[in-house]
């Protein structure tokens, strides 16, 4: 299957400063791909090269198999790009802004009004479409900002921090809408400072730092890259000391510490998959009455890989 968006060997330098070096990834239709990185890591430079705003020094971008450098107009018509800033006319209404983008992308005249109505429904703003954008809340503006990129039914949607300054309700609506679009087969490239959004929306994540992709994979793959073991907490009823000794002997358990009268904390690789063995191991000495598996999260992985937190 042709990738909806793929890039390879992308590089951009400004004098001595290497902004992006050898960045490459591929996004299949219906796949959501996250790009995580601290500020200045090269996320926006990478995206600018993907949407044709910036000419890369090296590397190629293929949109649905079309080379962006050779056939920019054909390639661009398959991309929907949502910039970080609200790039809309505040003097115009939501509908008028969408009409502008519809014309810009060349939607057929007759289909334009219908498609605008569809998009307004999709982003849940049909009832506010005819008031001026300047009167909208931050979340509503963000939704129009996304809607403007959907009018021409792009094969791949590229979002640069789409939920900055958005109220929880709008954030929920935006994320649900994106999940629906991905479910319908649209490819998605998503960057955000909000780890939980990326974890929720994206199937695959690349971590970019100092212009290079330092890790790339599913969430679990990334987390296991750090070699981080799960923490498993057990509440036991019975001979806790004897149970603890038994638990230490289970394969994969690195450590078992008694943390209270009835509680034990284990460090274990793939802790959640060990649960049945753990419960079996204590049989005859104690009964497991409660469990909690705490996985190392992406945030910890990110910190480990980049030496910085996302929200700096």
């Amino acid at each position: 299957m042709t990738a909806a968006l793929s890039c390879g060997g992308l590089g951009k330098r400004y004098g001595d400063l290497v902004a992006v070096h050898d960045v490459g990834f591929s996004i299949a239709p219906g796949q959501a791909y996250g790009l995580l990185g601290p500020n200045g890591a090269g996320k926006t430079t990478t995206i600018s090269m993907l949407v044709g705003l910036l000419r890369p020094d090296t590397g190629t971008v293929l949109v649905g198999g079309v080379d962006l450098a050779r056939e920019p107009l054909r390639a661009k018509s398959r991309i929907g790009y949502v910039p970080q800033e609200i790039a809309l006319y505040p003097e115009l209404t939501g509908r008028e802004n969408l009409r502008f983008f519809g014309r810009l992308f060349g939607l057929p005249r007759r289909a334009l009004a219908t498609r605008i109505a569809e998009v307004l429904d999709l982003i849940g703003l049909a009832d506010r479409a005819d008031t001026k954008l300047g009167t909208y809340s931050g979340g509503m503006k963000r939704r129009i900002n996304i809607g403007a990129a959907l009018l021409h039914r792009p094969e791949v949607l590229i979002l640069d921090e789409p939920t900055v300054g958005v109220d929880p309700q709008s954030r929920k609506a935006i994320l649900e809408g994106l999940e629906r679009l991905v479910g319908d087969g649209m490819a998605l490239l998503y960057t955000s400072h909000y780890m939980e959004e990326v974890e929720r929306v994206c199937d695959r994540v690349a971590i970019i730092d100092h212009g290079r992709i330092v890790a790339d994979g599913t969430r679990r793959e990334l987390v296991s890259l750090v070699g981080g073991a799960d923490t498993v907490e057990l509440v036991l009823d019975g001979d806790v000391e004897a149970a603890c000794a038994k638990l230490r002997a289970v394969e994969g358990v690195a450590e078992a510490v008694r943390t209270g009268a009835a509680s034990v904390r284990l460090m274990a690789d793939g802790g959640r998959y060990l649960l049945p063995s753990l419960i079996t191991a204590v049989e005859g000495h104690a009964t497991v009455t409660a469990t909690q598996v705490i996985e190392p999260d992406l945030e910890a992985t990110f910190l480990h890989l980049t030496g910085t937190t996302l929200r700096d």
Binding site: S77, Y89, L92, R99, R103, L104, F105, G106, P108
Partner: peptide, 19 residues
């Protein structure tokens, strides 16, 4: 959907409406 971009018309219409 066949796209026929009309950037000049889009910009002129939007800008005049803004004014």
């Amino acid at each position: 959907m066949t796209l026929r971009p009309r950037p000049v018309a889009a910009l002129v219409a939007a800008n005049l409406r803004r004014h």
